[in-house]
């Protein structure tokens, strides 16, 4: 599979169809994968593909990365879940479909965090998204690497994140509030969640608007709450549950739980799931007379 990937990357660079291939490579000790930017055909050998390839590289297609854009048209190695983010970027006018060459990789799941892998990929070290994945055969690709997967996601979603949502939903409002205040209290305001997110592409985030300072920069409980809730609200109807924010969080805030909850709310209210079709706009930015509006009581 890696050979097919390298061959395609090499060919694209040789023909000049793309100027850079954004993919995964090894770190020095071959213990972790890390993003690589291949600009010379002979360097295509550095590309790898395995269950440690957790990063959602679509973040590098956003306008936050001007120096990467300056390299020229990119090809990107993307799992189905990563492609969902690319499609949201296209639907939000951040990118044109023809601006990027998508090398889709069929995927049998990745690890939740790379350090958890000891030899093999076991279901218990896979993130919830992989257990319910309906894009193991990547969609909207220009080229596909890997054999077709015949994995069928379960009828009703399963996994840690969904169990946690059930547990939190069963609490009273004060219990839910206490849960989140406690989780957010650990936040150190490093903004790794935002920076790793391809859908947080604003060049100036609301937290950086300091005349006046809308979101307090202090990492005290109030500042942390306002940051985390604001980010969650800005992702409603857009987030694809790729899980990058939670993976990036150095203090283990369960951001997947809040984002998946929002996804469920949007699914129930608008029958919409983001990232499957670049022509449909996310529900929060369009008005439709068919909207149920049943939250207005």
């Amino acid at each position: 599979m890696e050979n097919a990937l390298r061959k395609k990357a090499k060919e694209l660079l040789e023909k000049g169809e793309v100027k850079v291939v954004i993919g995964f490579g090894w770190n020095r000790d071959k213990t972790f994968t890390t993003p690589v930017f291949i600009t010379k055909p002979e360097d295509a050998e550095r590309l790898v593909w395995n269950p440690l390839c957790v990063n959602n590289l679509s973040v590098y297609l956003t306008r936050k990365f001007k120096d990467i854009q300056a390299l020229g048209r990119p090809a990107i190695v993307a799992k189905g879940c990563d492609i969902r983010n690319i499609l949201v970027l296209i639907s939000e006018g951040q990118l044109k479909r023809e601006d990027v060459f998508i090398i889709g990789v069929t995927c049998n799941g990745v690890v939740y965090r790379q350090e958890l892998r000891k030899g093999e990929l076991k279901p218990e070290i896979m993130p919830t998204k992989c257990h319910n994945c309906d894009v193991r055969n990547p969609h909207a690709t220009d080229f596909v690497v890997g054999d077709k997967s015949d994995f069928k996601p379960p009828e009703s979603p399963t996994g840690m994140v969904f169990n946690k949502i059930k547990e939190i939903d069963s609490k009273e409002a004060t219990g839910r509030w206490d849960f989140w205040v406690n989780e957010f209290s650990r936040c150190i305001k490093c903004y790794a969640c935002r920076q790793v997110c391809s859908l947080c592409y604003c060049e100036r985030c609301i937290t950086e608007k300091n005349m006046p300072q809308w979101i307090e920069t202090s990492a005290h409980p109030r500042g942390n709450l306002s940051w985390n809730l604001t980010r969650a609200m800005h992702l409603v109807g857009r987030c694809t549950f790729c899980g990058e924010c939670e993976r990036a969080c150095p203090v283990n805030i369960p951001l997947n739980v809040i984002n998946q909850k929002m996804i469920t709310v949007v699914k129930d209210a608008f029958d919409y799931k983001s990232g499957y079709d670049e022509k449909t706009h996310p529900p929060m930015i369009v008005f439709s007379p068919d909207d149920k509006d049943d939250f207005i009581k």
Partner: peptide, 12 residues
Amino acid sequence: RKCIGCGACTYV
């Protein structure tokens, strides 16, 4: 090039 510009490294 791959740096995403978060502050995690500096804060820890």
